[in-house]
Amino acid sequence: MSLLTPLRSSRPLMDRRSALWQADWVLVIGVLALSAIGSLLIWSATYQRGSLTGGNQREFLVRHALNFAIGLVLAIGAAVMDHRRLRILAPVLYAGSVVGLILVLVPGVGAVINGSRSWIQLPWMSVQPSEFAKLAVIVGMALLIAEKGETNHREARTIDITQAIGVAAIPVMLVMLQPDLGTVMVLGSIVFGIIAVSGVPKRWLLGIVTAATVIGTLAIQFNVLKKYQLARFTAFADPSQDPQGTGYNVHQARIAIGNGGIFGQGLFHGSQTQNAFVPEQHTDFVFTVAGEELGLIGAGAIIVLFAVILWRGLRIAVNARDAFGRLIATGIVCWFAFQAFENIGMTLGIMPVTGLPLPFVSYGGSSMFAGLLAVGLLQNIHLRSHQV
């Protein structure tokens, strides 16, 4: 059947309604719980900071809830969309993300925040195209590989994989120019994960790792990375070298998490949090609020919730009815897994500081919209796997 054939549902009305019950509610509850915890952590990190809130103590709490509400609508739309329409819209999503990544590099259009030109400032909000580029790379690569996946010719298969990597290479290069090292690392994990399950020989995976190493070395040699980004790696290796400079964030984050102990100091009562010792605590370092105020139990609960989401994502990938769905689910799992590990790891000092938000927990509209769209796609694949 042609992808352009008008879509008509042959399923009875009762079957369509039953889709609500067939949804992966464990995944839904996990995402809802993370977002609810994130709302409390963001509120605690911002309600006393008048320079951020303008005197409205619930400013960021309301914004986070609004972002979630908008993202929820997007997730529902993605979940109920016919998968044939998704295939049609994949090139549009990819082209739109590339255009957005180009626009942020244009002086006067892209806004520089924390040393990276990654945002487009609109009158009512700022948009970060690189967040949507993660989803665009996943869908674009999955479409290319799945469309020609039936061929048994090794040469043709090699061409398909090469084209898919080329699809990812364009956003990666544009993000490098911002520069946004954290997003590049996430995109790299996505590419590696999708290629790993596409059925290619293992030498391809070794080649990808080698190419990433070479590109990283060249980026340092030709000063593509900024000095402050290189300094973050130095601080990651030894935060004590410059505790008041590049190592300040990591040093304060460790103190905050250490203060929490097992049960925490109590929500809204963390000494490091309420005295604003940890920078960017409502965005990149939101996990330190959990560590200090909710303690090991609260911080551990966040990690468990992420583990549940990744488990459900992997189940959806395994049970997907086609290669397109399986590759999309795999890419989303790689995205969430690496970004959560990197964000939590940098607050604990086991990963370098890269400025990545914690999915569903950190404050940020673009991150929330893209993340919930991804969850909607997971639900879409799950629902189709239960159709007869």
Rank of each mutant, 00 (worst) to 15 (best):
I42M: 05
T158S: 14
M173Y: 03
R321D: 10
S367N: 12
Q387E: 13
E59R: 04
M346V: 15
K202G: 13
T183N: 08
P179Y: 02
M368F: 09
Q221E: 05
L4M: 10
F287L: 12
L105C: 10
A36M: 03
H153I: 14
A317D: 03
W21P: 02
R326S: 15
A69S: 06
D15R: 04
V109E: 00
G188C: 06
C334S: 15
V388L: 12
R321A: 14
G365Y: 06
Y248F: 14
R16I: 11
V375W: 03
W335H: 10
V99Y: 09
R117P: 08
L101Y: 03
V209N: 02
E155Q: 15
L218W: 02
G188N: 04
G207R: 00
G258C: 12
V99G: 13
A90G: 10
A90S: 14
S118Q: 06
A142N: 10
D322L: 08
G365A: 12
V106L: 10
A146Y: 01
L74I: 13
Q241I: 08
I302V: 15
T288Q: 09
A337E: 12
T162W: 08
R117S: 15
G100D: 04
G270R: 06
V139T: 09
F236R: 02
G247N: 08
P239N: 02
T210W: 05
H269E: 12
G261K: 04
K226G: 14
L101V: 11
F336V: 12
I215G: 07
N67Y: 11
S10M: 09
G331L: 07
G182L: 06
S385Q: 05
I255F: 11
A329Y: 04
V175H: 03
P279R: 07
D284F: 13
L93P: 02
V375P: 02
I195A: 05
G30P: 08
L358N: 09
T246H: 08
G55E: 00
A340N: 10
G207V: 03
Q272S: 14
I170E: 01
F336S: 07
A142D: 07
V184R: 01
H382L: 11
I37N: 00
A75E: 00
P279T: 13
V112H: 07
M141K: 04
I194E: 03
Q229C: 05
V104H: 02
S9F: 11
L7P: 05
A301R: 00
R154W: 13
A65P: 00
L314K: 06
A196D: 02
L378N: 05
A69T: 06
S51F: 08
S18R: 09
S189F: 06
H153R: 09
A33Y: 00
L135V: 15
I88D: 00
V92T: 08
V80M: 06
K226V: 11
L348C: 12
A253I: 07
V184F: 07
Y47N: 09
R8T: 15
S9Q: 09
E293A: 13
V127N: 04
L310V: 15
S189Q: 01
V304F: 12
W25G: 10
S35F: 07
V109K: 00
A142G: 13
